[in-house]
């Protein structure tokens, strides 16, 4: 076991993937709790598709991928919020519109200029080799910023998530916190998508939160449980994908699904037990 771990960590790309992946999983689990509860979970999905489009443009033009993707996805996050707040196109439809368009544009761009190749596949489904050492620093820095902001605004994000009207009446600038949530999500999605894949990154946002909510009964325990689950699933996914040479993103998602099923089962059993003890 020890030998295996030493071997594992002797590869630079694994260490980089582990570092970035852990931070990204943690961030997306935290943000995911608010997003899922506020029924915004599809925003992560929409943003990842926009990110794919942006990465395609960067690849074609030969620019640094993160430098292009981060501002573009942030802009998209802002647009999505505005769209769902103040237009006749409802939120979910607006996201569907934007994400399909961005994905189509990205695929088109790459296939016209470079032909359908492994690059495209890597962007869509992720690659463990995607992290370069320059990315690691940026990713770590940005993730730490996301985590810090989350902790500082924890109580207010709770208030805005639980009851927007009450928070607004109490003088909390709910627009600011919604925008903050969208921007932090945009950052996290861009950081994680090259490893997890544009089509799979949103699962990091949705799964841990949903799984934790099956069993946890307070907000704080949901947050803690989701974070632990996210990191655990990522680590085991990474190791398994290394061992069996499976795609990292897909492996992580399937492990998340496994935990979700397990927690659902436990929650079902608990409810059974309670209704049983009530009827006695």
């Amino acid at each position: 076991m020890l030998d295996f771990l030493v071997e594992l960590f002797s590869y630079g790309f694994i260490v980089r993937a582990l570092l970035v992946g852990t931070f990204v999983s943690l961030c997306s689990a935290l943000l995911g709790v608010s997003l899922v509860l506020k029924r915004y979970s599809m925003i992560g999905d929409g943003l990842s598709h926009v990110g794919f489009g942006a990465l395609a443009v960067a690849a074609v033009l030969g620019w640094a991928p993160l430098a292009v993707a981060i501002p573009v996805v942030m802009l998209a996050a802002f647009l999505l919020l505005r769209l769902s707040d103040a237009s006749r196109i409802k939120g979910d439809a607006a996201i569907g519109l934007l994400s399909a368009s961005a994905l189509a544009a990205g695929v088109m761009l790459i296939s016209v200029t470079k032909g359908m190749n492994t690059d495209l596949l890597n962007y869509m489904f992720g690659s463990i080799l995607a992290m370069q050492s320059s990315d690691v620093w940026l990713s770590t820095l940005l993730s730490v910023a996301v985590l810090l902001l989350y902790v500082i605004f924890y109580n207010r994000l709770f208030a805005v998530t639980f009851d927007e009207n009450f928070a607004r009446a109490g003088g909390i600038d709910t627009g600011f916190y919604k925008a903050l949530l969208a921007f932090l999500t945009a950052l996290t999605v861009v950081l994680g998508m090259r490893m997890m894949g544009a089509l799979l990154i949103s699962s990091l946002i949705i799964f841990p939160a949903l799984t934790a909510m099956r069993l946890c009964r307070t907000y704080r325990s949901v947050i803690i449980c989701a974070s632990v689950l996210a990191v655990l699933c990522f680590w085991s996914g990474l190791i398994l994908s290394y061992l069996y040479e499976t795609p990292t993103g897909a492996t992580v998602v399937l492990i998340n699904l496994l935990f979700f099923c397990l927690f659902s089962l436990l929650s079902l059993l608990r409810r059974r037990k309670r209704s049983h003890s009530l009827s006695e």
């Binding site: 109580n155 208030a159 998530t161 639980f162 109490g170 704080r220 949901v222």
Partner: peptide, 20 residues
């Protein structure tokens, strides 16, 4: 609707009133 299924303890909800 969001609130009816919200995982939070009573104390967490009541404390959020103090933020104002």
């Amino acid at each position: 609707d969001v609130q009816k299924n919200f995982p939070a303890s009573v104390m967490e909800v009541v404390l959020s009133g103090c933020l104002n």
